[in-house]
């Protein structure tokens, strides 16, 4: 069942994102928010891992959190920056929403 995964913790302080990446199904999507957007920093293993995910897995990041951390200019091509209206649309599109609390 296609699931939207929400991650808001930094991947450098715990293993939530690492666990999530292992469990992503081919038609799932990942939305990074809060400190989880640090996974998109240049030169990190998490960025490499996100870039090498199957093309069928969509990856999003919340625009306000990218802006707050000055990461808007260096986004990988496959990562889409979205606002709350798009966040709502995604949560309707995917059948389940799994928050990595």
């Amino acid at each position: 069942m296609a699931t939207l995964h929400l991650v808001s913790h930094s991947p450098f302080t715990d293993s939530r994102l690492a666990s999530c990446l292992r469990l992503l199904d081919s038609d799932d999507a990942l939305l990074l928010m809060g400190d989880a957007v640090y996974a998109l920093c240049n030169g990190t293993s998490f960025r490499e891992e996100l870039e090498s995910l199957a093309a069928s897995i969509s990856v999003f990041a919340l625009t306000e959190d990218l802006q707050a951390r000055d990461l808007t200019q260096t986004l990988p091509i496959r990562v889409k920056s979205i606002g709350y209206p798009e966040f709502v649309k995604l949560s309707c599109h995917y059948l389940r929403i799994n928050s990595w609390l």
């Binding site: 809060g34 400190d35 928050s99």
Partner: peptide, 9 residues
């Protein structure tokens, strides 16, 4: 139709 949870950071 959907449950969404917010928590943590």
């Amino acid at each position: 139709d959907r449950l969404i949870c917010f928590g943590g950071h």
